[in-house]
């Protein structure tokens, strides 16, 4: 006949196995393993047992306590898992997810970053110059005649001290060449200003990326390859790119670039993207005179320069119909670009 403790062991396991909820299980634990529990009571009774009985009962007691403790733990885990599964089975998974405060970068920032990364892949470094410029950096150095209309107060913002707000980022060409000898491979993102009344396509302040590449024997082919690559990267490989001769005082020959792509809004038409050209030798001569050396000898060095209008590019790429959205900063607009 089994020992009384063995019977107790079996009874406890059966009771644990039968426990259907946490309260019943806890009651079983207290009954057997609690301070006054029946298995715990055997530890007291051990003291009064004979020397022969002690090892036998001790072993049984240990076995019972270990087994029942493990059974209770397993049963508890099982009950918890069942409860959890039941709870999860009932949740409404269609409830909205926790709201997160998504921030956003301004579309012009995104446009600039995208453009900069393309030029960086081609080996252009960044350069910068001030928004408030001297007339020399903005016009004289860029081969613009003293009576050129662009210098007029009707077109250019002046400060009381005679300096001006740069009308193009081409000033950074001059700033860069003043500081460093050739070769030069830079792009300069930045703001420029013109005295334009604000409307859907004009703004007093706009954003450009200027580019300057000066080296020995730079050709129109190099200019073309560089800007074709940029535009194809930006608008897709099947974009048509057209160079059209134009006039700028600081480049000769000068070109404007148009693109046409079905992927773009208004894609059945040529869209003007960029002004560019081969650096005019007179610009090198002006830089030399400012540097006081012959570092940019036009007989030895040649180069190309370009200016891309970021506002216009962003309007085309994102399908934004009105320039004024950029400066209004309506969160309903900005969030669309998050």
């Amino acid at each position: 006949m089994p020992h009384e403790l063995e019977q107790l062991h079996d009874a406890a396991l059966a009771e644990v196995a039968a426990a259907a909820d946490e309260q019943t299980l806890e009651a079983a634990r207290v009954r057997y393993l609690g301070r006054a529990g029946s298995i715990s009571a055997w530890a007291e009774r051990m003291k009064s047992l004979s020397k022969d009985e002690k090892p036998v009962v001790g072993k049984l007691l240990n076995e019972a306590r270990t087994a029942v403790t493990a059974a209770i733990a397993a049963a508890a885990e099982n009950l918890r898992a069942v409860k959890e599964a039941r709870e999860l089975a009932n949740i409404d998974i269609s409830l909205p997810g926790t709201a997160s405060e998504l921030g956003s970068l301004h579309p012009l920032t995104q446009m600039l970053d995208r453009s900069i990364s393309i030029f960086r892949r081609m080996g252009f470094a960044l350069a910068e110059g001030p928004d408030v410029e001297t007339e020399w950096h903005c016009f004289d150095a860029l081969n613009t005649a003293p009576d050129h209309p662009a210098r007029n107060e009707q077109d250019t913002f002046y400060l009381p001290d005679g300096r001006l707000l740069r009308t193009h980022t081409s000033t950074v060409q001059i700033r860069t060449m003043e500081k460093a000898p050739p070769p030069i491979r830079v792009i300069a993102p930045g703001a420029a200003y013109r005295r334009d009344e604000v409307d859907a396509t004009h703004s007093a302040q706009f954003h450009q990326i200027e580019g300057l590449y000066v080296d020995e024997k730079v050709s129109i082919g190099d200019l073309k390859g560089t800007l074709e690559f940029f535009l194809h990267e930006l608008f897709g490989a099947d974009t048509q790119v057209r160079f059209r001769p134009h006039y700028f005082p600081f480049t000769e020959p000068s070109f404007e670039i148009d693109v046409k792509s079905k992927a773009l809004k208004g894609g059945e038409k040529w869209l003007e993207m960029c002004g560019c050209g081969m650096v005019h030798p007179a610009v090198f001569e002006q830089v030399n005179s400012a540097r006081g050396d012959d570092a940019y000898d036009p007989e030895k060095w040649s180069g190309f320069a370009f200016g891309l209008g970021m506002d216009r590019l962003a309007m085309i790429l994102f399908g934004i119909p009105d320039l004024r959205y950029f400066a209004a900063n309506d969160l309903r607009f900005l969030r669309q670009f998050a």
């Binding site: 892949r121 081609m122 080996g123 252009f124 470094a125 960044l126 350069a127 910068e128 070769p183 491979r185 830079v186 300069a188 590449y213 080296d215 730079v218 050709s219 129109i220 082919g221 190099d222 073309k224 390859g225 560089t226 074709e228 690559f229 057209r242 160079f243 059209r244 001769p245 000769e252 020959p253 000068s254 070109f255």
Partner: peptide
């Protein structure tokens, strides 16, 4: 420029003139 205008820039093939460039302060 006059030569290019008549010859046609579309007849001038674009070339890859990429270069290694160190990082600048900007």
């Amino acid at each position: 420029e006059e030569v290019v205008r008549v010859f046609g820039i579309e007849n001038i093939p674009g070339r890859d003139r990429s270069r290694f460039t160190p990082e600048s302060e900007a």
